[in-house]
Nucleic acid binder design. Structure first.
Length: 814
DNA sequence: GTATGTG
DNA sequence: CACATACAACGCTGA
DNA sequence: TCAGCG
């Protein structure tokens, strides 16, 4: 049983006021309620569970049961546990008392929690179920005689709610070079007494009137940070900010903020201007960058523009990195290090962890170490400045900027053996470039023991005799290039190899990351409109599924399937008799056809006018089950734009001797090749033994060129590995190979629609999958009429956002 | 499943 | 009346 | 050129 223990300030929450309420639990369990942080809708509650501090936002609301004393709590890693209230959430401006209550009898999907609050319409789902990042708490005992249970919704607290402190908290300490975050940004420091500033004593300082104009010094871009120089004047490396370069002129307790182009933006930066006015000096010129620090602690230009557009100057932070003038002395000929020291002392009295002005600190030593760290944090890059350099009002080589590269995924092409590291020392990486795999070097850090085990268990079964790509070093144990690794790296060498590469995970980027809510496309009325004759008729055998099973399946998956069906020419595969040898295709209107099925006019390949079918509404779709429709096949286009396909498909068909694992690996390789030319590949089972790799494209080209282009792609992939693939239809060459069938990309050709059942025993489904789900499927026939509805209900449609990933296929010549 | 053709 | 039949169609392949 | 194939 989990223990809830009192949080006793092991971490510094000095920003939060003292707890104003305390709720002591039974059995030694207690938690502390902070009223601080409450929005108009939530209390901020923190409790420590098994030593881990958890933070929750507790919605406030009317206290329906002020004498309620006991709550049940259940979270992801804690079974049901109880908290006895001895007190209640404190009285005060929010009303106090135990929180929200709802009637268990009226389940409904929960909408936006805050909106529910505003409307007073609290609707929650199930006990302990995770909802939108929060958890339900169940009040244990219903009142005697009352058949209802009360619920409290705890929303997981978003810790990324403030600015500078989150930069500090979210950055891990660097392992290399002993770099700590405090070196990147000053640790939150208490305002200090001003030290005596003596700019006139610095070497190079000149007594003169304050200039009223400064051209900011600019940095020269470099691919790599400068190496540690041999002489005694090191480089100082700062974080490069992504914002507006700004120079602050302070005079007589007034500040002017001037942009790089000389505009006076003092008013737009109101809050900063006011803060600068408090800098304890008579005159100063401070160089820096105005940024918005987002919730991840990352500065982004876009956020800054938003803040300015909305006049939210209170979101702005000024990172000060240079001091050009102070109290009668021009400092432009003073060494940078001295200028920065003086700047730090000058700002110390007013800089705190949450002040609008921050001192931009630096590190010395290997700039690439900082660059690696900055890259991990998805920051813009670093600026390296010579410690002894004077300030130059122009672009200079004493300031160098190096951009951070983003994390990317690379194909694992091999690994090195290492006894010490548990069998695996490093991964060899490759990258698809124009359909060919190129070597990109090794990654040897970032693994922990379980990761090593996982990688080894995945890679050993797919070892290769010979290298799958040129230029791979001999010491590698080669593997099928089917897995990808997420890699962070500082930059690349001239030959493309990665520098400072860090392994971040074996990731199939879950492309539809935020699963959209299930959209209800089938109403109860639609379902009620279906009538099924012979509901008990067996399909394909005496113990097979019934015709009713078929109708129920399509009823259940309709919400997920219909988006892929609507508006596309459809071909039906029917078996009204239910006999396996009595199956036929239908693509034209037929007698007795439900009138809710769509019909449109088109010409066939002989230019004859024909009518074709499409599914246009849920009723028509549901009615088809009654007509013995088992399979739905679609064209790769919509009838509204019949001649220009928007989806292409590669049907991977296993030849004799090819296992399911082989097919999975093959699909990954096809995906790699496709993504190498900028196409987004989605995968589904074909319903048989194969896989369909489907690519959404923009409908820009006609069928002829698409068919030709997909043929070229298939041939290219097959040419890259003739032992595995073949793009040729001929029968006997297919043995022990995977046939890449691209012929479904011709006009009038069809492929099984996503979620379509297949007319064979057991009614397997053509099932869209995430690429990483694919790995956990052992037998595709397990995805069938009876199992799939449940799976879909809990995980949703992995292809829900497929159309948003449509690429523009390059036009192909005649 | 339904309409139609055929003996 | 019982019974049979239609209900798709593309490009490639090897003969 | 055509039957066969997916």
């Amino acid at each position: 049983m989990a223990q809830l223990t009192t949080y006793r300030g092991k971490r510094d929450f000095s920003r939060t006021p003292e707890p104003e309420g305390r709720v002591d639990g039974g059995e030694g369990n207690r938690f502390v309620v902070h009223k601080h942080g409450a929005t108009s809708l939530h209390y901020d509650l923190r409790l420590e569970m098994d030593g881990v501090l958890k933070s929750w936002a507790v919605p406030k609301g009317p206290s329906l049961n002020p004498d309620d004393k006991r709550l049940a709590i259940q979270t992801e890693d804690h079974p049901l546990d109880y908290i006895d209230f001895e007190g209640v959430i404190p009285e005060g401006e929010y009303g106090g008392g135990p929180m929200i209550v709802w009637d268990a009898g009226t389940w409904a999907p929960m909408g936006d929690i805050e909106e529910s609050f505003r409307s007073g319409d609290f609707k929650f789902r199930l006990a302990g179920e995770k909802l939108k990042g929060g958890w339900m708490l169940k009040r244990l005992k219903p009142k005697p005689g009352e058949d209802k249970v009360n619920w409290l919704f705890f929303k997981e607290h978003d810790p990324a709610a403030s600015t500078t402190e989150n930069i500090l908290e979210s950055r891990p300490e660097s392992v290399k070079s002993g770099l700590t975050i405090e070196q990147l940004q000053p640790a939150p420091q208490k305002p200090r007494k001003p030290v005596k500033l003596e700019p006139g004593k610095l070497k190079g300082a000149r007594e003169m009137p304050m200039p009223d104009k400064i051209q900011p010094q600019l940095a020269t871009a470099t691919a790599d940070p400068p190496p540690i120089p041999g002489d005694r004047t090191p480089w100082l490396h700062e974080i490069k900010f992504d914002g507006y370069r700004t120079i602050a002129f302070i005079e007589d307790r007034q500040a002017r903020l001037i942009t790089r182009s000389g505009l006076d933006w003092s008013d737009r930066y109101k809050r900063l201007t006011n803060t600068f006015a408090q800098v304890p000096c008579r005159q100063a010129i401070i160089d820096g960058e105005v940024v918005v620090v987002d919730s991840q602690g990352v500065t982004t230009f876009a956020a800054l523009q938003d803040a300015l557009a909305e006049s939210r100057s209170h979101d702005l932070t000024f990172f000060a990195f240079d001091l050009l003038y102070l109290d009668g002395y021009d400092l432009q000929n003073v060494a940078l290090r001295d200028r920065k020291d003086l700047l730090r002392d000058l700002l110390a009295p007013i800089v705190s962890s949450k002040s609008a002005i921050q001192y931009s600190d630096h590190v010395e030593g290997e700039g690439s170490d900082l660059l690696g760290l900055v890259t991990e944090k998805h920051l813009e890059g670093i600026v390296s400045k010579r410690a002894d350099a004077r300030y130059e009002q122009t672009r200079s080589t004493t300031w160098l900027k190096t951009k951070a590269r983003r994390a990317e995924d690379f194909v694992i092409v091999g690994y090195t053996r290492s006894e010490a590291a548990g069998g695996l020392g490093a991964l060899g990486l490759g990258e698809w470039v124009d359909g060919t795999l190129e070597y990109r070097g090794k990654v040897g850090t970032g693994f922990d023991a379980p990761t090593l085990d996982l990688l080894l268990s995945r890679l050993q079964p797919i070892e290769l005799e010979r290298a799958p790509l040129p230029r791979a070093p001999k010491e590698l144990v080669y593997v099928e290039p089917v897995y990808s690794a997420r890699i962070h790296y500082a930059n690349r060498t001239n030959d493309g190899s990665l520098r400072h590469a860090v392994y971040k995970g074996l990731i199939e980027p879950e492309r539809p990351t935020n699963r959209p809510e299930r959209r209800r496309l089938i109403s109860d009325a639609d379902l009620a409109s279906v009538s099924i004759t012979n509901p008990t008729r067996r399909l394909f055998g005496d113990d097979g599924p019934t015709k009713l099973d078929l109708a129920v399946y399509y009823g259940l998956v309709g919400d997920f399937m219909l988006p892929h069906l609507f508006g596309r020419p459809v071909t039906l595969v029917r078996s009204p008799s239910g006999k396996a040898d009595d199956i036929f295709y239908q693509r034209h209107p037929f007698s007795g056809m439900p009138k809710s099925v769509g019909v449109f006019d088109a010409v066939n390949s002989d230019s004859e006018a024909r009518q074709y079918l499409s599914v246009e509404d849920p009723k028509g779709y549901l009615a088809l089950a009654q007509f013995g429709v088992i399979e739905f096949h679609t064209w790769g286009c919509h009838h509204a734009d019949l001649e220009r396909p928007d989806r292409i498909v590669f049907d991977l068909d296993p030849g004799e001797g090819i296992t399911w694992r082989n097919i999975v690996a093959g699909a990954r390789r096809v995906r790699g090749a496709l993504e190498g030319i900028g196409l987004n590949a989605f995968v589904k089972t074909s319903g048989g033994k194969g896989l369909h790799v489907v690519v959404p494209i923009k409908p820009h080209h006609d069928w002829k060129s698409i068919h030709k282009a997909t043929g070229a792609m298939a041939q290219a992939i097959a040419a890259g590995d003739r032992d595995t693939f073949i793009a040729n239809m001929s029968r006997e060459k297919r043995k022990n190979r995977i046939f890449i069938d691209f012929h479904r990309n011709a006009r009038g050709a069809t492929a099984a629609a996503p979620y379509s059942l297949r007319a064979r025993p057991g009614l397997p489904a053509s099932t869209p999958l995430n690429w990483n789900q694919l790995e956990s499927i052992d037998a595709p026939e397990d995805l069938n009429y009876s199992s799939l509805p449940q799976i879909l209900n809990s995980s949703g449609d992995p292809w829900a956002e497929i159309d948003e990933y449509a690429s523009d296929l390059q036009a192909v010549g005649p």
